[in-house]
């Protein structure tokens, strides 16, 4: 816990007094109001596709995300895991992710086991537990399906961190508010792809617009064996994995 007792109490007091808490600073603009490019959220529904059979574990996505979003050292909005599964032991995979794979992976020593990489990030769930538990409306799903954080409004109470079944959230060590993948909302709303997809050398990760009938995501979902993580959680995840092994949690 890196939030001071005082901050914690102040947050609790605001919450008790106001019924739902609010930060007085919420209206302070982040920067000089730049001209934002025209964008119609009603025309989009964002998600991501990940092809396990193309991921080479280079860690480009982790480095790109970190650079694009100023992710603090030792924290990750996206990371890559390496799985080793002993023959016949699907329930006990060995999973490693040294420093989130920001420097890739050292060559592994085990050569006889099933092995593969799994990139992870916020699943941008349609019925997201993190949004449901936020007491102040500081985390929400945008009209185009991206789970975002209002940093001016977040208390740092950590409910959402506990609620996320995928471990995709952390408390920013300086801001003391929650932080997570924004699906590079500042990029995708001006026609660019996400930083991780831009840097992915094999096309293992691809940004998907499910509302665009011409998006290759539709063929991807139709023609492949596709899985979401933890389907039993019924979060309606929009991060779709192709060729995902059953040992992956």
């Amino acid at each position: 816990m890196d939030v001071s007792r005082r901050e914690m109490l102040a947050g609790a007091a605001k919450f008790l007094v106001l019924g739902f808490a609010a930060e007085a600073a919420a209206d302070v603009p982040l920067a000089a109001p730049a001209q934002l490019p025209a964008y119609d959220p009603s025309q989009h529904w964002w998600g991501m596709t990940i092809d396990i059979d193309l991921c080479i574990g280079c860690g480009n996505c982790v480095r790109a995300c970190s650079a694009e979003n100023g992710v603090p050292d030792g924290y990750f909005r996206t990371w890559v895991e390496r799985y080793h599964v002993k023959s016949g032991d699907q329930e006990h995979p060995k999973v490693e992710s040294p420093d989130g794979a920001i420097k890739g992976f050292p060559p592994s020593t085990e050569t006889n086991e099933k092995a593969f990489y799994v990139p992870k990030l916020c699943n941008h769930c349609e019925t997201s537990p993190c949004v449901q538990v936020c007491p102040v409306g500081a985390t929400f799903e945008s009209p185009d399906g991206v789970v975002l954080v209002d940093t001016t409004y977040c208390l740092g109470c950590r409910y959402c961190i506990q609620a996320c079944p995928y471990g995709c959230r952390y408390i920013h060590p300086e801001r003391h508010t929650v932080d997570k993948c924004s699906l590079c909302y500042h990029r995708i709303t001006q026609g660019l792809t996400t930083a991780c997809c831009e840097a992915c050398p094999t096309g293992a990760r691809k940004l998907a617009d499910l509302k665009n009938p011409k998006d290759p995501v539709h063929a991807f979902l139709r023609d492949n064996k596709v899985q979401v993580l933890k389907p039993h959680m019924a979060t309606r995840s929009k991060t779709f994995y192709k060729d995902l092994d059953g040992s992956v949690r």
């Binding site: 964008y39 959220p41 929400f140 954080v149 409004y153």
Partner: peptide, 14 residues
Amino acid sequence: GHYRAGAIDDNRRR
């Protein structure tokens, strides 16, 4: 929705 509408543009203004 149950959030500050301006937070969307805050997320874009980067």
